[in-house]
Design a protein around this nucleic acid. Sequence first.
DNA 1: CCGTATAACTGAACTATGTTCAATAGAGGG
DNA 2: CCCTCTATTGAACATAGTTCAGTTATACGG
Lengths: 199, 199
Amino acid sequence: MAGKVAERRAALRENLVLIAERTIAQQGLSALRARDLASEAGCAVGAIYNVFGDLTDLVLTVNARTFHRLGADVAEALADAPQDPVEQLVIMAQAYHRFAAENHLAWRALFDVERARGEAAPDWYLEEMGRLFTYIADPLAVIFPGRAPDEHALLTRALFSSVHGIVLLGLDQASSGVPTEDIDRMIALVLRQFTASAK
Amino acid sequence: MAGKVAERRAALRENLVLIAERTIAQQGLSALRARDLASEAGCAVGAIYNVFGDLTDLVLTVNARTFHRLGADVAEALADAPQDPVEQLVIMAQAYHRFAAENHLAWRALFDVERARGEAAPDWYLEEMGRLFTYIADPLAVIFPGRAPDEHALLTRALFSSVHGIVLLGLDQASSGVPTEDIDRMIALVLRQFTASAK
DNA sequence: CCGTATAACTGAACTATGTTCAATAGAGGG
DNA sequence: CCCTCTATTGAACATAGTTCAGTTATACGG
């Protein structure tokens, strides 16, 4: 029987990803342990290293899926949004917030992976990020028609970073619990105020 | 001789903080190791635990100092700034960026400490953050005189978070190296645009 | 100045973690 | 059916933070 090995490997891989995804979502990145993973998957610890180079590889795989779901949520919100470009920005940003709040630990894991110094970000990360940036850049082009392309790129990145910062610090425990509504208000405040003087 | 013990304890404490500070600044939080620390300080590993509850305590002490230096830098920038409140915001934000860039690993350590779930942020953190917020709130009150106090608080937090997000993602390697000037441009862009329609 | 109670300091040992690799088991070809 | 070769296993290794019984040093009363 050809491919019996490859088949089992693929099944194990899938299984490990699902278990890791659930663990991260429920208990956070730091709760991911090789031995627990192996025991839940019904395999030896070493088997993990036949399928993934190390645990970081596995986490990156989970992160790719998380990031993809995030992108899909934002895209869906955009699809349902009205034509007004400012409203589109607000709705997308609030969808970002909603995803981060509802998938807090998985979302945190996106940024908490130890990136080996100097190592480039994985392709899927850059692609997904590029997609998000496009969602932002399009309404921005409508709102600020007169500006140079490089300024558009800067604006896009700046607004994404701003919303990310608001959500990050807003959801952070250390900031002693900003209510969800306040986070949405801050997002709307910044985006509306930012775009208020455009025309 | 009274206090000989307390004296040595204090000296060891000081020494450990300095060594930890240097290690974090030069090699990052993850390079901080109890055994290295003890060997550099010329004491036993156990001695660290006579002075600090655990390594996180030590890191928090270093972080308090880092945060204090950060606050001082921003305050200094504000003191040298012109009267114009928008300019004041821009200059403070760029000072924040400068500090983060010049003390990258120490600055990262401020946010990378594992906070035990549910544990409150330490007092010094809240105090220093409050000071930073005041620096921001004052010019904002001049720029937006008509708004309610709770909206001012929200605005303050939103702007701080936005700048933080821009600096965070800008300095992040994964974002494939945003040039320093671009970070400053994004900061100025967001703050100027945000405040442009105020009057 | 000495003896004793108290406290601090030591570092080997314990626990927990990711990772490796010699030994084993099993698949696929002849 | 046997043989080879590879995938799989899990005990062992490396490296962490942390603990604590034993040791050493201090402070203080007499």
